[in-house]
Design a protein around this nucleic acid. Sequence first.
DNA 1: CCTAAATCTCTATGAACTAGAGGTTCGGGA
DNA 2: TCCCGAACCTCTAGTTCATAGAGATTTAGG
Lengths: 148, 148
Amino acid sequence: MMTIGKLSVTAGVKVPTIRYYEDIGLMPEPERTEGNQRRYVRAHLERLNFIRHARDLGFSVEAIRDLLSLQAKPDAPCHDADRIAAENLADVRAKIARLKKLEAELEHIVSECAGGRAGECNVLATLADHALCTTDHGHVHNSLHEAS
Amino acid sequence: MMTIGKLSVTAGVKVPTIRYYEDIGLMPEPERTEGNQRRYVRAHLERLNFIRHARDLGFSVEAIRDLLSLQAKPDAPCHDADRIAAENLADVRAKIARLKKLEAELEHIVSECAGGRAGECNVLATLADHALCTTDHGHVHNSLHEAS
DNA sequence: CCTAAATCTCTATGAACTAGAGGTTCGGGA
DNA sequence: TCCCGAACCTCTAGTTCATAGAGATTTAGG
């Protein structure tokens, strides 16, 4: 039996957010004390961890709701789970690819600029041109500043 | 010279969102026709592409504003760019790591379940246990369903 | 038993959009 | 040249996913 505060710290989810998740039905209503305070058990912690991880990774609340509801029906769960997983896989891969590009650019910026040579850094031009592009839109001239 | 509709389609950003970006100062006010309609040039498209990519990758509007503002001051821009880059690098790496884990799990789900064997699939138990965990919280028993 | 910390509900704020109402402008065809 | 439907305009309101206070109540340790 743990309080909402303990659950909050353990799962790394803020107290109001836990109550919010209860409101929208992601978390079940826990038992209450005589004085109306929520008391949670380990199962709640695991569910909340699941929700937090999924949110961190960009799943919408709706997707999480789907996922959580699946386990309630043990008949033919695979098909739905498969669909949900497949729907996210391409997206996840695209995100990884773009983040890797971004990582490389950020590394470049940090290592190059940490030296302290200001004025020779074309970081922003680079970023504006290609760093964040997954779709190849060819060689376009950087005119970021012209737009502002 | 393109209309907001053309810009919207080309950049993949909805029309109201473009106007919203203008409101909050991410996009500059473009020229207008006699009849008060916005007309954009290529520079606007590039800037909007930059914004969209950055948003997709999880940068906040504030971070993007920082990045965009840097190029306006050519004096000692490196220091700021460096700081902004460094602030984001760790976060980007963490995101990549977690997404890779998620990718592996999703692949597993898709390949395993695509066979069609319903009822033998422990996808959800797997997810609930460890799939989405970056912080190792040890071997906890899956009791997701007990919480609902 | 007493009190400080934690909890309760409820309402409001925040970011980042998104949608709709009601009116105006644009551009291609008759 | 005029017309009309699509696209545009502003403005307000709603959405999602939280997060922050106000003011009242409960809990637990000394």
